[in-house]
Design a protein around this nucleic acid. Structure first.
Length: 576
RNA sequence: CGGGGUAUAGCGCAGUCUGGCUAGCGCAUCUGCUUUGGGAGCAGAGGGUCGCAGGUUCAAAUCCUGCUACCCCGACCA
């Protein structure tokens, strides 16, 4: 590619709206252009990178017997009504009507579509297991797109779906898919990707992992053991080996006057105690307005994801004061004592069960009780873990203090089970001619998000430093003073030779000032740079520099093509 | 969906408070000359529905009303 013809201008200044590194460089380098909030076009440079990422993904999916398909972006609502998701998924699903007033939607994920395909094409145990995948545009009507490609409304996704006759087969394949994902991210050149335990959310299913690119701008919070491998989990599901201290003798309940002390900190300070000597009450309601009373020790926060999973409800909302009063409790002074158990579902954290003589509300303004003990005062409560892990809490595996990191979710894998196959009648016949729903897994990768994540992890003050396997070009030629000493003609010849050698080469033939071309080259981030100039060409030499390194060195013009081929091969080996 | 901010040339901005010459600056673009090792200089040129719609006024980028879009924080997020 000749730079004089390349569409996509470089921009000298940071765009005012961009906050993250990847967003800035994707705009400044001429990789993407925004069209609307969370919607953008890919320019030639961006498209080249995306194509390389897609090909790596494709190779690895094919290597685990995946078959590539392409499903529609526009789907009929009836398909989503079969699974029930047309109603349950909220406003991220863009719905519309066609000219015949038929309900349609833009696909945001394709479980329904792939089940539709599989139930018509696959019916025997002899055909299983099978995995279908596609690389396709998805649309999610995000409430708040941000950070360029990190959270977009329209984006490219690789989504794969596997079908199995039994759980063991899925377990085995899930492991294969996990290994394929590890290879994919290594080949893309992301050095810091971890697979963590995660919540499966609206996708359903039990076992799931997220692949997180560690980056400060990431939206997800991850807890990691200090060794970086013993324990890794999303904050939504993270657990810790909490030590709650010793149980002590149960004391008599004692009502105390605590005027105006509503918060845990105020009450504890007023009574000369610590937050961990108190019990905190948090009220929620679910979609059916059932009231839920969650109780946890004062020094912890309730983890709503854990609570949702414990209650098996999709959504929880903070209860209003009115709803709390209707159940016989007093906001700010709510108590597990004297609650109407018929009107409220009670869930208690392990921390409460493990503690003695806590301060709790008295269900009466300006009063608390001392010496609450679960086993005496609330014996029938459901006890489980609904606590948020805190930084420094002991790792459940090693006991070391857990660390917090931020991550960008670039991929995820789920075991779906029969969540879709059962309601949608995706069945197969076993050896005995008996019909069973297929057991499913699904496996996603955000392609654009992966490109942005590579920049987040691989850049310097001048632009991205692309790993060779995904770089838009492998080699860039800068021709300085092309009208002197035959530099221009020599650069033309070198460009042709490199192309004939099968090397992806970008040729800056514009004859701009050196600094101008170098700045552009930095923004394009091509791994290998060759400079031809009147300074070295008369000696039959070209300058060679790796992107990201300071030092350059001279190469003989006669051997440069061969040397580059070797270097490219060696460099590619590092990512396998 | 709640809170905050912005909207003037392709990009970045000034001008708006206090209404008043032909709406300005830097970068980018085009022409010519000089330059050429980390975003060059000189000279010239093109480019605007001042987000949209109403209103006030002799006069609106500027004041008033409504709307829209975009960005940031939060809620939400397979």
């Amino acid at each position: 590619m000749r730079m004089s013809k390349l569409v996509g201008r470089r921009i000298k200044e940071d765009p005012k709206d961009a906050v993250t590194i990847s967003h800035k460089y994707l705009i400044r380098g001429g990789y993407i252009r925004p069209v609307s909030a969370g919607i953008c076009s890919l320019l030639p440079l961006g498209k080249r990178i995306i194509a390389k990422i897609e090909n790596i993904i494709r190779e690895e999916m094919n290597a685990i017997d995946g078959q590539e398909v392409l499903m529609p972006v526009v789907l009929p609502a009836e398909l989503w009504q079969e699974s029930g998701r047309f109603e349950t998924v909220a406003s991220e699903l863009l719905r519309f009507k066609d000219r015949n007033e038929k309900d349609m939607l833009l696909g945001m994920t394709h479980e329904e579509a792939v089940v539709h395909l599989t139930r018509t094409e696959v019916s025997s145990y002899k055909q299983l297991p099978v995995m279908l995948y596609q690389i396709q545009t998805k649309y999610r009507d995000e409430a708040r797109p941000r950070a360029g490609l990190i959270r977009a409304r329209e984006f490219t996704m690789k989504d794969a779906y596997s079908f199995h006759p039994d759980q063991e087969c899925l377990d085995n394949y899930y492991e294969l898919a996990h290994e394929a994902y590890v290879r994919i991210f290594k080949r893309i050149g992301m050095s810091q990707v971890v697979s963590i335990q995660s919540d499966s959310g609206m996708m359903g299913g039990k076992v799931s992992h997220e692949f997180m690119a560690l980056a400060d701008c990431g939206e997800d919070t991850i807890f990691i053991s200090p060794d970086g491998k013993s324990y890794l989990a999303n904050k939504d599901v993270a657990v810790a080996a909490w030590k709650y201290g010793e149980k002590t003798d149960v004391l008599e309940l004692e009502k105390v006057h605590t005027p105006g002390k509503e918060s845990i900190e105020d009450v504890a300070a007023f009574l000369g105690m610590k937050p961990e000597n108190t019990g905190k009450a948090v009220f929620y309601v679910d979609d059916d307005e059932n009231l839920i009373f969650a109780m946890i020790r004062g020094d912890f926060e309730v983890n709503e994801t854990k609570l949702k999973n414990a209650l098996k409800v999709p959504n929880l909302y903070f209860a209003t004061d009115e709803q709390i009063r209707n159940a016989g409790a007093e906001p700010g002074y709510a108590s597990p004592l004297s609650l109407d158990h018929d009107k409220v579902k009670i869930v208690v954290d392990n921390s409460i069960a493990a503690s003695s003589n806590l301060v709790v509300g008295a269900n009466e303004a300006d009063y608390h009780f001392k010496n609450f003990n679960l086993e005496r005062d609330l014996a029938d409560a459901e006890i489980t873990d609904i606590a948020c892990v805190r930084e420094g809490d002991p790792c459940p595996v090693t006991g070391e203090p857990l660390q917090i990191k931020r991550g960008i979710e670039v991929g995820n894998i789920f075991q779906l089970g029969t969540k879709y196959s059962e309601p949608m009648n995706c069945n197969f016949l076993d050896q005995n001619g008996k019909s069973h729903p297929m057991i499913m897994g699904c496996y996603g990768i955000g392609v654009g998000r992966a490109m942005a994540s590579v920049i987040e992890q691989s850049h310097d003050n001048w632009g991205p430093v692309w790993p060779l396997p995904v770089a838009p070009f492998q080699v860039q030629i800068c021709s300085l003073n092309p009208n002197k000493e035959g530099v221009g003609e020599a650069a033309d010849r070198l460009y042709e030779e490199l192309r004939e050698a099968g090397i992806d080469v970008l040729y800056d033939d514009r004859g701009e000032k050196a600094g101008f071309m170098f700045k552009d080259a930095d923004l394009i981030g091509v791994p290998f740079r060759l400079v031809l100039s009147p300074k070295t060409l008369p000696n039959n030499q070209v300058e060679f520099k790796r992107r990201g390194e300071k030092e350059s060195r001279l190469m003989s013009r006669d051997t440069v093509v061969a040397e580059l081929k070797v270097m490219i091969d060696e460099e590619m080996q590092k990512y396998l």
